[in-house]
Every structure is written in C-alpha cells, then in structure tokens.
Nucleic acid binder design. Structure first.
Lengths: 213, 213
DNA sequence: CCAGCCGTGGAGGTCAAGATCGGCGTGCAG
DNA sequence: CTGCACGCCGATCTTGACCTCCACGGCTGG
C-alpha cells in the first residue's frame, strides 16, 4: 500500500450516522457546486471531497439534480428570511433600505459563496431550478413591494418594478463588490447604495401618482 | 407556432456561398442556444435547424464553444455600442439616464432574445465566456462611471459602485419586465426607473465631498 | 453528351459522466 | 467463538453528445 491518498480531505472508512453523513455530503456538494458549477461538477468529485464513494452518495440522494435542489432550496430560504427579517427590523423606511441592502451584502459574503447557487446557477434551463430562482426573486420583490406600495401609494405593478429594481441593485452590486475585492469597506458601500436608493425611492410619495412626468 | 422560423423553410440541398451559409448557421445556432441553453443544445439540433448536416457545421466552426463565442462576442459588442451610444446621445444627464435605461430595455426586447446569451448564460464556468461577460459588464459600468464621476466628483471606486448599480437595475428590471409580460408599457417602465435612478444619482453632487477639484 | 470533382449526407467512434452490483470489514447477540 | 446484519467500496454499464469516414449528386470542360 503506497501513500497515494495522503491528500484526501477526509479519512476514508469512518462510519457515520445517516443524518450526519447526509449533512457532510451536502457540505461537500456545496463546495464542489460553488467552485465548479453544476455541469462541471462530477458526482465523483463530490464523493471524493466527502471522503466516500459514489454509491453512498446515491444512497442518500436519488440523483445529482435532487442533491442540487436540496442545496438550492436551503439557500433560497435563507435569502428570503434574511430579506424579510431586514424589512421587519424597523419601521423607519430609510433604515429598511439600509438593512435590506446589508442583507444582500451579508448573503453574498456568507460562508462558502453559496449565493452562487441562487444568483449564478448554470442550470436555469432545468424548470425546477428556474422555478425556484424565479420564485425567490419574486418573493423578495413582493416583500419590498409591499413596503413601497404602502409608503408611496403607487400601483402594484409599478411598485413591483421599483422593488425588482432595488433587489437587482443590491444583488448586482453586492456581487460586484465581492468580486472586485474592493478596498471600499462593506459599510461604506452599503451606505452609498442606501443613499442612492433612498433618494430615489423617497422622491415618489410626495409626488403622488403623477410621477409619470 | 410555425410563424417564428425563417431559416427552417429552406429545403435541404441548396448550395450557399460560404459567407451566407455562415450567417445562416449563426442564426440557427442563436435560436437553439437561446431556446435551450448551451448544454441542452445539441450540434445535431443546430444543424437540423439550419437544414444542413453536421460536417458543414464543423467546416465553418471548429467546435461548439467557438460557435457560442462568436454569438456571444457579437451580442456583447451590440450591448456595449448601444450603451455608449445612449450615453453619447445627449449632454443632459437626466436624458442620459433615460436613454441608457431604454437601451437596456431595447436590448432585452431585441430580436431572438439574444440577451440571454449575455445575461443568462449557462456556461459561466468556461473562462472564455466568463471573461467576455464580465468584460462587457465592466465596460458598460466604466462608461456610465465616467459620466457619474464627471458629474458628481465622486472617487473612481465609488462612482463605479453606483454605475454597476445603475447597470444592474436596468438589466434586472428589463428582464423582469420582459418576463412578466407586464401591461405596463415600455416607455412607462423606463420613465419610472429613470425617475428612481435620476433622483438617486442627482442627490450626490451637492452632497458629496466637494474638495475634489 | 459524358467524365471527373467537390461538397453533402448518413452512419459510426470515442469518451466522459451519471448510475449501479458483488465483496469486505466491523460490531454484536447468543 | 461464530454467524448475522449493515453500511461501505472497487469495478462496471449505459447513455448521450461531440466529433469524423464511406457513398451520392450537381456543376465544368472537352
């Protein structure tokens, strides 16, 4: 027996309770999916990363897609609760904007870069994935939209457009900020965007529904 | 559903000049890539869509990736020139915002839904694709950023953050607007977003640190 | 009119990756 | 001690998609 397998991440041969094994597999799958994307990620890679062989993977998940969907659901849920929590954290609308922006930044900065599964998935052709990604975007936008509609009195469709815009700003800029390894600290970036968004959104209520001009 | 195809009606066996054949192949490939995504699209599908057989496809393009990259380059270029054109179309900064927003909406509404190749690619793991998508986003943001920096006197990093945000809003909302089959007409949506963005961005010059020459 | 040539077409090779079957070792009850 | 149960591993199968090889048919020159 030569020492070919000295770089193995986890020792092979440890027996784990099923629940713990499942969690470990989810963790390994997340690392591989985040690093490689869905298509480039091989089940062999995930199994190797977890320190088990492929059959055990298939004993815990029916297939690659279900494994991916489990992770996707988990992180969609996380984003949604985070955004809803930010909106519910105060009644001051400016603080709400700030808290929501910060929620996106925190989400993007979170452990393992799991946001890539939601925002940069390469499986959007799969209807199940598309449905989940669209749904979480819509639910976030609806949560924001409710506050906007309440505050500005705009019609539902128009407040949804603005809400989608605010969510889009947060998501896109947070990803850019993370990717650019910017020297701008997170708080500063959030403050800057909050200024932008709040000035933009606060102009609406006083002008009423005639913002058409 | 047979009203869409312009290229399939061509009977098999017609001989075309090389340049024309290449254009036709690009058109067929775009339709298939847009409809199915990169991975789900098969070279057989593209060849069949064009009414030729696979070898001719490979006589015009070395492989699937190069075919995709040719389309991607084409539409990245289109977006960039469109955005630059919008920014150069006037010196009134509010009109610039409006024109840029409208450029994104027009791009998204454009023939064949080619924007999906740029904004919803499922091949972002491929470095060549990633590089192109990132580059066009950065170049658009830089173009916008220059105007912002000139107008507000903000530092480069901060104006880039705002520029990325404005580009992000345009892109995300335009896609949402298209997908939602909204009853809101395009002009109205553009006007609404322009109000939002312009109020937001116009607040900066008077507010920022003005010791900046 | 006819012979050659070149581009087209269908059938096939290769390979990667998802999904699965016969051994093995460990721990426990009796 | 011994037989059993169970979870794990090495090796394998199959599918599907990218990418080329043998026949056919229309154009050119004598």
């Amino acid at each position: 027996m030569t020492a070919i397998e000295q770089t193995q991440a986890r020792p092979r041969g440890t027996r784990l309770p099923r629940r713990a094994r499942r969690e470990q597999l989810l963790g390994a799958a997340q690392e591989v999916f985040v690093a490689q994307g869905y298509h480039a990620a091989a089940m062999d890679d995930i199994a190797e990363r977890a320190g088990v062989s492929k059959p055990v993977l298939y004993q815990h998940f029916p297939g690659k897609l279900e494994l991916y969907l489990a992770l996707l659901d988990q992180h969609c849920e996380a984003l949604l609760t985070s955004v809803r929590g930010a909106l519910a954290s105060t009644t001051d609308n400016k603080k709400r904007v700030e808290a929501t922006m910060d929620a996106y930044f925190a989400y993007v900065e979170d452990e393992g870069g799991a946001f890539r599964l939601v925002f940069e998935s390469d499986l959007t052709n799969e209807p199940a994935v598309r449905e989940r990604v669209d749904r979480v975007s819509l639910q976030c936008a609806e949560a924001i939209s409710e506050v906007i509609a309440e505050d500005t009195g705009l019609a539902r469709e128009q407040s949804m457009l603005l809400a989608v815009g605010l969510g889009g700003v947060s998501q896109v800029v947070a990803r850019y900020w993370l990717a650019s390894e910017s020297q701008v600290p997170r708080d500063t970036a959030v403050q800057l965007l909050t200024s932008l968004a709040w000035r933009g959104i606060a102009g609406f209520p006083l002008h009423g529904s005639e913002g058409h001009h």
